[in-house]
Design a protein around this nucleic acid. Structure first.
Length: 485
RNA sequence: GGGCCGCUAGCUCAUCGGGUAGAGCGGGGGACUUUUAAUCCCAAGGUGCCGGGAUCGAGACCCGGGCGGCCCA
């Protein structure tokens, strides 16, 4: 490429959005000028030089507008026609309509704002290689239609979650990401080292325990939107770091959280898509409240025709699991077997939305015993399109019972379950100060956005999804990081 | 970890019953005073992911590895 003399200005003030240029000029006749001079800036995405005139599509965040340049009236015309696709320019000129009727900015003066040394893929087909799209999202955003709209939708979805919760009197907080012991969920953590404390710490696997401590501290309605880290595999539905919103409401139980779930999800759908009746992966999905509510046992029986519940006993559960092709290890108790049967046979086929209620107690160490059903807890998961969108309980507030549950977890951990919880004395001490009856709800923000954006893969809704580090042959291995001197 | 699919020019993709590689776009040069993925002309651009193997001959076939996608664990 012939290097152009670059004299990039420090600022290019006074621009208007490209998509707004035509506003007020709808009646401009083909071939006519408006007398109205505007500044626009963005990238050149198409160029059509024609000798002594030239056309280009200038695209900015808002959309695009055609640039029209004429050798006799455009500053440095020849230089302008030598620009490459992807170059950033700022132009000043009159709003006109060309003879063919295209509303345009007729360039009078212009500045090169940045050069694009690399292309943005095929100008018609963009880039398709998933690795390239995710690794170089800055390219994907320009090359492929719809990508920026997805992330704009995500931004609006998160904003509407905040607005809906704020309207209901919830207070947004931020709690630590680095935890001395992992807690609040059954998951493997990432480990890091805290130099100042000479101790290993864990990236949080949930925000649950700190938020409950805030309820104990008097935050009766509290929530946190934040990044969660789980040291597990990558898949089209899983990214090791993802975003959750966890919500706690004092004096409420899980039925209240079901109401809140419906209202929240439907509200976000309305705010971002204008409707609660969506299409997800070519299938209708109606998020309009109220959603169906059914127990796990009912749903398993609907799907399999078999009675799967804690009353039938472990041996019978294990037998049914075998019949259904679900493998069970000898160490698993009734609750775990029931959950596995549900997850293997029933959940993937639940299109929903449906509130799946009443989980076995021994797989739910933070939820309160069901008020009428022995062995179960008051817990539900909202399930949409065959996967859980969240998780919610009537929270366990009794410190003695919580200690027993955590000690049981610790035994399972000692027996080799590295997703089991550990006893968190700080949390237990907080519970001893008294937590009122409380409902808690967590929603996976990424999965919610997938539904709204009709995205099949979580990577489509994460700007920079987790990827293996890029192999660079032209670069040495990074030296070990220096200790802070 | 297992199965299936893929990896060819900067991008998107072809090619073939094994005979040493093509197009469009982009980038470079040129023509063009109203284009809309402008058009036309010219030239450049490839260790066919890497490494082995059978073959007179492999990008194609076989084996191993790498990376990616999907499915399963």
């Amino acid at each position: 490429m012939s290097p152009l003399p670059i004299d990039v200005p420090y600022r290019f003030p006074g621009t208007v959005p490209a998509s707004s240029v035509g506003v007020g000029h709808e009646l401009l006749e083909p071939g006519a000028g408006s007398g109205h001079v505007v500044c626009v800036a963005g990238r050149l995405m198409l160029t059509r030089p024609q000798g002594k005139v030239a056309f280009a599509e200038l695209r900015d965040w808002s959309g695009s507008v055609q640039l029209f340049a004429v050798a006799s009236s455009t500053d440095r015309f020849e230089e302008l026609t030598r620009l490459s696709l992807g170059d950033w320019v700022g132009v000043t000129g009159e709003v006109v309509r060309t003879r063919r009727g295209e509303l345009s900015v007729q360039v009078a003066t212009w500045s090169l704002l940045a050069q694009a040394r690399h292309g943005f893929g095929d100008k018609w087909r963009g880039v398709h290689d998933p690795d390239l799209r995710y690794r170089q999202r800055e390219v994907d955003l320009w090359a492929n239609d719809g990508v920026r709209e997805t992330f704009l939708l995500r931004s609006r979805a998160v904003a509407s979650v905040r607005r809906l919760l704020d309207e209901r009197g919830f207070v947004e907080v931020e709690t630590p990401v680095l935890h001395p012991i992992p807690g609040g969920a059954l998951a493997k953590p990432f480990v890091t080292h805290y130099n100042a404390l000479h101790a290993d710490f864990y990236l949080r696997i949930a925000t649950e325990l700190h938020l409950k401590r805030l309820v104990i501290g008097g935050f009766e309605r509290v929530y946190e939107i934040g990044r969660i880290f789980r040291n597990e595999g990558l898949s089209p539905r899983h990214n090791p770091e993802f975003t959750s919103v966890e919500i706690y409401q004092a004096y409420a139980d899980y039925t209240d959280m079901m109401d809140l779930t419906e209202q929240l999800v439907a509200g976000v759908a309305l705010a971002t898509r204008g409707t609660t009746r969506l299409v997800y992966q070519d299938r209708e999905l109606d998020l309009t409240p109220p959603w169906r509510r059914a127990t796990m046992a009912e749903l398993i029986e609907e799907t399999t025709g078999r009675a799967v519940n804690l009353d039938v006993g472990r041996d019978e559960l294990a037998r049914v699991a075998g019949d259904l092709g679900v493998t069970v290890s000898p160490s698993e108790g009734s609750g775990k077997i029931m959950l596995e049967i549900y997850e293997k046979t029933t959940e993937p086929g639940l299109w929903g939305p449906v509130m799946v209620m009443d989980y076995p107690r021994d797989v739910s160490p933070l939820a309160r015993d069901h008020r009428t059903k022995a062995g179960y807890v008051e817990r539900f998961e909202p399930v949409v399109a065959g996967r859980e969108l969240g998780n919610a309980f009537t929270e366990l507030a009794d410190p003695d019972e919580q200690r027993r549950r955590l000690e049981a977890q610790a035994l399972e951990r000692a027996a080799g379950d590295d997703e089991a919880m550990v006893v968190d004395e700080e949390f237990l001490r907080a519970l001893e100060h008294g937590m009122p009856p409380t409902g808690g709800l967590g929603i996976g923000v990424d999965r919610l956005v997938m539904l709204l954006a009709d995205a099949a893969s979580i990577r489509e809704v994460l700007l920079f999804p987790a990827l293996r580090p890029e192999q660079r042959e032209d670069r040495e291995e990074p030296a070990s990081p220096d200790e802070d001197g």
